[in-house]
Amino acid sequence: MPERPGTAAAARPDYVIALRKPPATLRAARERPRWVRLLDSRFVRRLAILTVLALAWQAYGRVASNDLIFPTLTETARTFWQILVHGRLLTHTLISLDLLLQAYAIGVVLAFCLVVPAVSFRIGADVLSTLTAMFNPLPAIALLPLAMLWFGLGQSSIVFVTVHSVLWAVALNALAGFQSVSETVRMAGRNMGMRRLRYVFCLLIPAALPSILAGLRVGWAFAWRTIIAAEMVFGASSGPGGIGWFIFEKRDTMDTSAVFAGLATVVLIGLAVESALFRNIETHTVRKWGMQRS
């Protein structure tokens, strides 16, 4: 290289040196302390958060010291245990869960019936995005009067409005997922000889799985909200009624700790499904595949 004016080439001589051997402590992979590794566990972190919340609940309940307005954690737990063992909490919960699973299954199947044509044809995508834009903002509860007209005061009305709340959330997310599958992966799949259903099931669905799972999650939460709200409006038209009705009923009799216990049931099921089901599916799929960071 020609010498540039102003640079002191002589002041910075070229050199080549032998490599230094790093000390053994740096060469070996060092073990991280046990308690630091413990914090890597999501379960441990979540447990810590829940403990703090529980302590805060208990402390405030003690200070308020009014079981009619804000029962303590221990009081709620005692009631919870009592109605679980002697009362009908389990029956109410199972009734709600039964309706919920029916509605969720129907909603997911319908969503895929809309999404598959949407990924195959441009007009299908237009149909789905228009329908979603129209119906997604519509609260499921607003459809209840209509559902009562069509299906009467029975479980089918609750299922109908719950399907509505699941369908659009799942469809919207799945469509977004399919549309974000990169052109390279699509071409690679077709190049390998994937066509039609195999292309959808062996390429598009796994490639769009992060969004599909997100949609299933949102749909699950929406389904719970809708079913509890619908049960409160409907009451127990047939049989003992679901958990929503249970909560409503207990408020009527000012059994506040039972109301808390009912709400806690919904929260606990939500936590369990989230960490046992969705989290597990994610760990064994999209996180393992590096499509979502863990």
Partner: peptide, 11 residues
């Protein structure tokens, strides 16, 4: 064989 690194199936 494509230029992009995402041509392998991540799953």
């Amino acid at each position: 064989v494509f230029q992009e690194f995402d041509q392998l199936l991540p799953w």
